[in-house]
Amino acid sequence: MEILLAIMIGVLYAAGIYMMFRRSLVKLIIGIILLGNGANLLIFLLGRLVKGKPPIIAEGSKYLSEAYADPVPQALILTAIVISFGLQAFAIVLIKRTYKVVKTEDLDQINTFDEFE
């Protein structure tokens, strides 16, 4: 599964970057989201995959038993997911606002618009 997941992550990265190369603002943001998902999964994978052992201390015990999933990447990813939600919301609203002002979502046209200001 690890190999499969590693390939999956590569595909997510490739898809995200490909979308960021496009001229459309919406595609740019889809690309950023895909890239973010890829990064989250990469961190998760590198913390090693463990099946059915969440990092939760069992009833009556005072610490985790030997084989458990690494809680550190999980905490990192949780933070990343929530923060990227803030980023995505802001980016989406930015598209909306940009479109309202310049009436295009073509990044190149926004570029030239800049010069006429």
Binding site: E2, I3, L5, A6, I7, I9, G10, V11, L12, Y13, A14, A15, I17, Y18, F21, R22, G38, L42, L45, L46, R48, D70
Partner: peptide
């Protein structure tokens, strides 16, 4: 062109992941 660049990078990330997985884990 864009696809080639993107796929190259994606492939490298996959390789990176596999390489790291071969290393002993630090816990």
């Amino acid at each position: 062109r864009d696809g080639l660049v993107a796929l190259t990078f994606g492939g490298l990330v996959t390789l990176l992941a596999l390489l790291v997985l071969e290393q002993p884990v630090q816990r």
